[in-house]
Computed example of a mutant assay.
Amino acid sequence: MKLPVIRPVDMDNLQELLPLLELQQQAYRIEAELVGFEEIPPLLDSPQELRESGESFFGYYEDEKLLGAISCKQSARELTICRMMVHPDRFRQGIAGALLRHVEAIAIPGCAIAVATGTTNTPAVALYEKHGFMASRMQLIAPGITMTHFIKLAEP
Rank of each mutant, 00 (worst) to 15 (best):
Arg29Gln: 08
Ser75Cys: 05
Thr146Trp: 14
Glu104Ser: 04
Thr122Lys: 15
Val103Asn: 00
Lys130Cys: 14
Tyr60Gly: 02
Gln15Ser: 12
Ile106Pro: 02
Gln139Ala: 08
Leu14Thr: 11
Glu49Lys: 14
Leu99Ala: 02
Ile108Gly: 09
Pro41Thr: 05
Gly68Glu: 08
Glu16Gln: 13
Phe91Gly: 11
Leu20Ile: 12
Pro41Lys: 11
Ala96Thr: 02
Ala142Asp: 08
His131Ser: 02
Val125Asn: 05
Gln24Cys: 02
Gly110Val: 07
Asp10Thr: 05
Ala116Asp: 13
Leu21Ile: 11
Lys152Val: 00
Met11Arg: 15
Ala124Asn: 08
Thr120Trp: 11
Thr122Gly: 14
Ala76Lys: 12
Met1His: 11
His102Arg: 05
Arg7Thr: 10
Glu155Leu: 15
Pro41Arg: 08
Ala124His: 02
Gln24Ser: 02
His131Asp: 01
Ala116Ser: 15
Ile6Thr: 13
Ala124Arg: 06
Arg83Ser: 00
Asp10Ser: 04
Ile6Lys: 08
Leu100Gly: 08
Arg90Met: 09
Met11Pro: 10
Glu104Ala: 00
Ala32Arg: 09
Glu155Arg: 14
Arg137Tyr: 07
Arg137Met: 10
Leu23Met: 10
Gln74Pro: 12
Met134Arg: 07
Ile70Met: 06
Leu14Lys: 10
Thr117Ile: 04
Glu55Phe: 01
Pro143Gly: 12
Arg29Phe: 07
Leu66Tyr: 03
Ala98Trp: 13
Asp45Cys: 07
Gly54Asn: 03
Thr80Asn: 09
Phe57Met: 04
Tyr60Ala: 00
Met84Tyr: 05
Ala32Cys: 14
Ala126Lys: 04
Pro109Ile: 09
Ser46Gly: 04
Pro19Gly: 08
Val125Trp: 09
Met134Gln: 13
Leu34Ser: 15
Val86Glu: 10
Leu14Glu: 14
Leu18Tyr: 04
Pro109Ala: 13
Leu3Cys: 09
Pro42Trp: 06
Asn13Met: 03
Gln24Ala: 03
Phe37Trp: 12
Val5Ser: 11
Leu50Met: 14
Thr119Cys: 07
Ala124Gln: 05
Ile70Gly: 03
Glu52Gly: 01
Arg92Asn: 12
Met138Asp: 10
Ser71Asp: 02
Ile113Ser: 01
Ile141Arg: 05
Ser71Lys: 01
Glu129Gly: 10
Gln48Leu: 09
Met147Leu: 14
Glu104Asn: 00
Gly97Ser: 11
Ala105Asp: 15
Leu79Asn: 05
Leu43Tyr: 03
Met84Thr: 04
Ala76Val: 05
Arg29Leu: 06
Leu50Arg: 13
Tyr128His: 06
Leu79Ser: 05
Pro4Lys: 06
His87Ile: 00
Ile70Cys: 05
Glu31Val: 00
His102Thr: 06
Arg29Asn: 07
Thr80Phe: 07
Lys152Ser: 00
Val115Leu: 05
Glu129Tyr: 10
Glu55Arg: 01
Met147Val: 12
Ala124Pro: 10
Ala96Asn: 01
Val9Glu: 01
Leu43Glu: 04
Glu55Leu: 03
Leu14Arg: 12
Gln15Gly: 07
Met138Leu: 09
Ala116Ile: 10
Glu38Met: 15
Met11Val: 06
Ile151His: 14
Pro109His: 15
Leu44Trp: 01
Lys130Trp: 11
Arg92Gly: 14
